[in-house]
């Protein structure tokens, strides 16, 4: 018996096809098409109001597109249109196979329950009923996101902004999702705290082989984390390619402007 020595091409994980969202007459995003593969980090960049969050919400089933499709390949290998699935199926996906990291940790955390319960919630949601296992899992995850494990019973109100964001990340990763959506995850943080979080994100993403779709207006974040970058303007994708290419050799004048603006001292 012989094996092919070239590894077969990985099947795509998520595909957007002409995804379009209108808010009344106003364009949120229009005709966005791309694919994401397992383990790949895709950055969505663009100025404020360019449609980044709208697109992310359409991809993550938080906002139904006006037209176009978004498909996702489940663990069973079947590619399905997310908006043809039942709400129950979508919600299962959201709390098992996906993560969603909000810009403001308070939108993604339960601020009045302990850090341990915040991390453990998804485990309980998928049927884990052993307190000891939940707690040791939560404790491991706190350690992985560099939160002292003796803070496990504190609630996030007692945490700094950076700790809260790291807790939100742990809470999302505990069920070993394959795809994580992030909307400006470093947005509200001080520069030094941002740098630490980015380092952490980068190592988690590569250790876990996560696919990530990350929205940021900060090109440095895209540069550090992503393999590919998609540049948006007025709701449309105007440039799309390997991050290094897009940032080092932008083709579109708008992207050139974006890049040059951050390179200004």
């Amino acid at each position: 018996m012989t094996f092919q020595d070239n590894t077969p091409e990985q099947p795509l994980l998520l595909r957007a096809s002409k995804t379009t969202k209108f808010y009344g007459d106003r364009i949120g995003c229009q005709d966005v098409s791309f694919e994401v593969y397992p383990g790949e980090v895709l950055a969505i960049v663009g100025e404020s109001g360019s449609g980044k969050s709208t697109l992310l919400n359409c991809l993550s089933t938080r906002l139904a597109p006006t037209t176009g499709a978004v498909e996702y390949r489940g663990r069973d290998g079947i590619l399905r249109d997310l908006y043809q699935m039942s709400e129950a199926q979508r919600r299962v996906l959201m709390r098992t196979d996906w993560g969603y990291v909000h810009q403001h940790p308070s939108d993604g955390l339960r601020m009045t329950v302990s850090a341990g319960a915040n991390v453990g919630e998804r485990l309980m949601a998928v049927g884990e009923r052993h307190y000891g296992n939940i707690r040791s899992n939560a404790s491991d995850w706190l350690e992985r996101v560099e939160i002292a494990t003796d803070r496990i019973d504190d609630d996030p109100r007692a945490f700094s902004g950076g700790m809260r964001q790291r807790l939100q990340i742990a809470r999302n990763l505990v069920t070993a999702p394959r795809l994580v959506f992030m909307d400006e995850p470093t947005g509200g943080l001080d520069v030094s705290v941002q740098a630490r979080l980015l380092d952490l994100l980068r190592s988690l993403v590569s250790d876990l082989g996560l696919a990530v779709i990350i929205v940021t207006h900060d090109l440095a974040v895209a540069r550090l984390l992503s393999h590919r970058t998609l540049v948006m303007r007025h709701g449309r994708v105007i440039e799309h390619g390997l991050t290094d290419q897009v940032l080092d050799d932008p083709q579109e004048s708008y992207t050139q402007l974006l890049v040059s603006s951050i390179l200004q001292p």
Binding site: E87, A88, R91, R95, R110, V113, S114, G116, A117, G120, E121, R122, M124, A125, V126, R129, Y131, I134, R135, I152, D153
Partner: peptide, 22 residues
């Protein structure tokens, strides 16, 4: 209501977890 409809009861155990932790 949605949680009842979809049998999403993980939150109930979060409450019990908090009891035990505390």
């Amino acid at each position: 209501r949605k949680m009842h409809a979809l049998e999403e009861y993980g939150l109930m155990h979060v409450k019990l977890y908090e009891d035990i932790a505390r």
